[in-house]
């Protein structure tokens, strides 16, 4: 809720963002954002992602892909990760990846779930056979250069890495 969100770590050593200076090295800042387990938070998350993505000089196309995949991953967490009702927090961290793309990690304290191991729906041959579900996982795996999962200290840590 608080304005500490999205303040880049190490901001004091960092020059102001320069989206129009491709000759400068990529900003090294990492941006953090906390949202509650409420689907109504997704728009606020997307706005944060777009704003910080621009500051990190991530290309609009990669920001769009990351926005889509973050929507899918966080929707799954909010919809399926929690056994009991109640307020929970999901923490996102965005930074430039070494590959020159971007890396977004999503951390939650819900039940263990590895999106990289979940089965993908079989593509139906006909509309009548189309199974509705599992498309989010498919989109993330196909659109990202890498998806990594770790279970650490009772938390899920899912990391999406875009193409360069």
């Amino acid at each position: 809720m608080l304005s500490l969100d999205s303040r880049p770590e190490g901001a004091e050593q960092r020059a102001s963002p320069a989206p129009d200076r491709p000759d400068l090295p990529f900003p090294e800042a990492e941006y953090q954002f906390t949202l509650q387990n409420d689907l109504g938070e997704l728009r606020r998350m997307s706005e944060w992602l777009e704003r910080c993505g621009r500051e990190l000089r991530i290309s609009p196309r990669r920001i769009d892909e990351l926005d889509l995949c973050a929507n899918e991953a966080v929707t799954n967490v909010i919809s399926y990760a929690y056994d009991a009702p109640g307020k929970r927090e999901i923490v996102l961290r965005l930074k430039r990846a070494q590959s020159a793309g971007a890396s977004l990690s999503i951390e939650d304290d819900g039940r263990p779930f590895d999106p990289t191991a979940a089965p993908e729906p079989v593509p139906p041959a006909r509309l009548a056979d189309a199974v509705i579900g599992g498309l989010g996982i498919k989109l993330m795996r196909r659109m990202m250069a890498r998806c990594d999962y770790q279970r650490k200290g009772g938390r899920n840590l899912f990391t999406l890495v875009t193409h360069a």
Partner: peptide
């Protein structure tokens, strides 16, 4: 300007209803 899997689901459900 943005289509997530939930929107794809909406398109599929409507397409399916018409095709049936």
């Amino acid at each position: 300007n943005f289509l997530a899997s939930i929107g794809i689901r909406t398109l599929l459900l409507n397409g399916k209803a018409v095709s049936q």
